Simulated scan of single mutants.
Amino acid sequence: MDFSGAYSADNLMFLLKGFLVTLEMAVIAIILSFVIGSLIGVIRYSKIPVLSQLMAVLVEVIRNLPLLLIIFFVYFAVPEVTGVEMSILTSAIISLTIFESAMIAEIIRGGLNSIDKGQIEASRSSGLTYVQTLWHIVFPQAVRRMVPPIVSQFISLLKDTSLTVIIAAPELMHNAQIINGSSQKFIVPIFLLAALMYFVVNYFISLFAQRFELKRT
């Protein structure tokens, strides 16, 4: 093991660049998947004819596919079928968003379904519209129950960015492998540092979620 050689200024900067790409992919995919997943979750909860059933099939198909397959499909198959060329990062973000949107949709739907139907009926009978009932009665209560699984899913998303190494996305694990390729003595220190980077970010996400949950109680 060569810690001093592995942690040279050039190697650390190269690893940091990869980590910044990891964070960029994760943040964009988190925002997009939350918006799309929330919309799909509400549609499924509302049981909109045809559209709800269509979303249910789509979600179940995506949830039961490995993320690696989705990454391959988006990067290789979509350009072949559509003729639209995408960059590696764009393909990676789209793949992560597709997969995570399905997961978030189920969390949203489950959280909304966990609210007692009697409260909804009482709200409607008091004159609130369906949208007002969702926004003022259902969502505030459901959010408390949805925060832990959503945060857990976002932590998983950050870790899942490492799978994009298969299409050579220049993220943390990709750059770690390149550094490791220059010397076998770097394998332990480099991957220890990469693990520490993942841990620190995920740990602070968990702390933020805990504080948010405490404020809402």
Rank of each mutant, 00 (worst) to 15 (best):
M1Y: 13
F3G: 08
G5D: 03
G5S: 01
A6L: 06
A6E: 00
Y7P: 14
Y7W: 15
L12N: 10
M13V: 14
F14I: 06
F14P: 05
L15W: 03
K17G: 14
G18W: 15
V21I: 03
T22R: 00
L23G: 03
M25K: 06
I30C: 13
L32T: 02
S33P: 01
V35Y: 08
I36R: 05
I36K: 11
G37M: 04
L39W: 15
I40R: 10
I40C: 06
I43F: 06
V50R: 05
Q53G: 15
M55P: 10
A56Q: 12
V57I: 15
I62K: 10
R63N: 05
R63A: 03
N64M: 01
L65P: 10
L65N: 03
L69F: 05
I70T: 08
F72G: 04
F73Y: 15
V78H: 00
E80T: 11
V81S: 01
T82A: 01
G83T: 07
G83R: 09
E85A: 14
S87M: 00
I93N: 09
I94N: 02
L96V: 04
A102V: 03
M103V: 12
M103L: 15
A105Y: 08
E106D: 00
E106Y: 06
I107K: 00
I108D: 02
I108F: 05
L112G: 02
L112T: 01
N113C: 08
S114T: 01
G118A: 10
I120W: 07
A122P: 10
S126C: 12
H136V: 09
I137L: 11
V138W: 05
A142F: 10
V143I: 07
R144M: 13
M146D: 01
M146S: 03
M146Y: 02
V147N: 00
P148R: 11
P149N: 05
I150H: 08
V151L: 13
S152F: 11
Q153K: 09
F154S: 12
S156Y: 11
L157V: 05
S162K: 10
L163S: 04
I167V: 07
I167C: 00
A168Y: 14
E171W: 00
L172D: 05
M173P: 05
I178P: 15
I178S: 12
G181Q: 04
S182L: 15
S183V: 04
K185A: 14
V188A: 06
F191M: 13
L196P: 08
L196A: 09
F199A: 06
V200I: 15
V200N: 05
V200M: 03
N202G: 07
Y203M: 10
S206L: 08
L207C: 11
L207K: 15
Q210L: 14
Q210I: 14
R211F: 14
E213S: 05
K215D: 09
R216I: 14
